[in-house]
């Protein structure tokens, strides 16, 4: 009866891994079957808890990679000195069980009623919750104009590359590669800066809504620049990750 005990209570529960799919050399998407999952909103995350034989536990948060109404999935980047991600990206198999709780978050969330135009800015695996927003927009038939600026080290590090290249109908994905660019690269090069944002960001006069997700330094730089060009701080939603 635990599941029906208190509505809205966040409790740890056991999910089953339904699939694992490699996105890049160091990133994989893990499909999950979560009994009684109440549904999630684009941008939310969940907490994963691993317990060692001696009882030691480690918890980490991962963004839900899918849109509302789709099966739950998380996309995890392997950090070689991490405590949790090496297990999730190397050892975990379909059929394995995983302890988690969620969905979590109500601030870094986009619903179609929030409108736009939307500016999404991703650094590395910060693209995960923004991909959920893209998918939610697509699945709900929303025509809110959307631009995703995605900063990645190299082309091989771009997560969801094939999917992101397919968006049309008012959704535009723009890449910048910071470390190396393949021959004939026509996207941006280098870190996201004020000049790049000036070309890509919707003018503040259009009352855009921005979501910025990535490593702490990346998020702070981008958020400061957006506020500097007139985005009200309350319209720049940020989520920082960092990791072990």
């Amino acid at each position: 009866m635990a599941r029906t005990a208190v509505r809205g209570r966040l409790t740890w529960q056991v999910a089953t891994v339904t699939s694992v799919a490699e996105e890049t050399d160091s990133v994989r998407t893990i499909g999950l079957e979560v009994p009684g999952w109440p549904g999630h909103r684009a941008g939310q995350h969940l907490d994963v808890r691993l317990t060692a034989e001696d009882g030691y536990t480690a918890e980490r948060s991962y963004s839900v990679a899918t849109a509302d109404g789709e099966p739950v999935a998380i996309t995890v980047e392997r950090l070689d000195d991490g405590e949790v991600s090496p297990y999730l990206t190397a050892d975990l198999r379909a059929g394995d069980e995983l302890e988690l709780r969620g969905p979590i978050g109500r601030w870094f969330v986009w619903d179609t009623s929030d409108g736009g135009p939307l500016l999404l800015v991703a650094g590395g695996s910060g693209v995960v919750p923004l991909r959920a927003i893209l998918r939610h927009r697509q699945r709900s038939g929303s025509d809110v104009p959307l631009r995703l600026l995605y900063s990645s080290r190299t082309l091989a590090d771009v997560i969801y590359h094939r999917e992101l290249d397919q968006y049309r109908d008012g959704a535009q994905v723009i890449y910048t590669l910071t470390r190396s660019q393949p021959p004939g690269w026509t996207g941006y090069s280098g870190r996201v800066d004020a000049a790049m944002l000036a070309q890509i960001a919707w003018p503040a006069s259009q009352h855009p809504l921005a979501f910025v997700c990535g490593p702490t330094r990346f998020v702070e730089t981008v958020a400061e620049q957006l506020v500097a060009v007139g985005y009200p701080p309350g319209r720049v939603k940020t989520e920082r990750f960092g990791g072990t």
Binding site: L10, G105, T216, G243
Partner: peptide, 22 residues
């Protein structure tokens, strides 16, 4: 490790019994 309040959404929910990130 310096992050933001999103990262403790689960802990805040545990402590306050409701979603608190907003």
């Amino acid at each position: 490790m310096m992050l933001d309040g999103n990262a403790i959404g689960g802990l805040l929910h545990e402590v306050f019994g409701t979603e608190m990130t907003d």
